[in-house]
């Protein structure tokens, strides 16, 4: 998995690529919690390059989301590939996370 931090018109975007699994989740957690500790909001996660996510990856985002809720922060997912959307829908996590089609959509809302 690769993590790239992009600044998009003043909004922080974590652009991810590859598999998010039990081996790569610790790196993702480190990066995500870095922004959470700084109380960054909104924080966007760009999934366009992600090929797979397992439950450890989802748990990392759940931890980030719960921590962000503590300071009223918003965690927004964008560009989720169909197969990953299927996993999120299976688990009804599409109701837990804010999901948008594009970075612009996420910034507008």
């Amino acid at each position: 998995m690769k993590i790239e931090v992009v600044d998009c018109k003043g909004v922080k975007v974590l652009a991810l690529s590859g598999d998010i699994d039990m081996y790569s989740s610790p790196d993702l957690r480190k990066e995500l919690m870095h922004f959470v500790h700084k109380k960054v909001s909104p924080l966007l996660v760009d999934f366009r390059g992600v090929s797979y996510i397992d439950s450890s990856g989802i748990a990392t985002f759940v931890e980030g989301l719960k921590s962000m809720m503590g300071y009223g922060g918003k965690l927004k997912f964008v560009g989720i590939p169909e197969k990953i959307m299927e996993i999120l829908c299976f688990a009804k996590l599409d109701r837990v996370f804010e999901i948008y089609g594009s970075i612009d959509d996420a910034c507008r809302n």
């Binding site: 957690r29 439950s55 989802i58 748990a59 990392t60 985002f61 759940v62 931890e63 980030g64 989301l65 719960k66 688990a91």
Partner: peptide, 14 residues
């Protein structure tokens, strides 16, 4: 759900 809601590291269970 309320009993397991304080699990660390975002752990959850389907």
């Amino acid at each position: 759900n309320s009993l397991v809601s304080k699990a660390p590291r975002g752990m959850f269970l389907t």
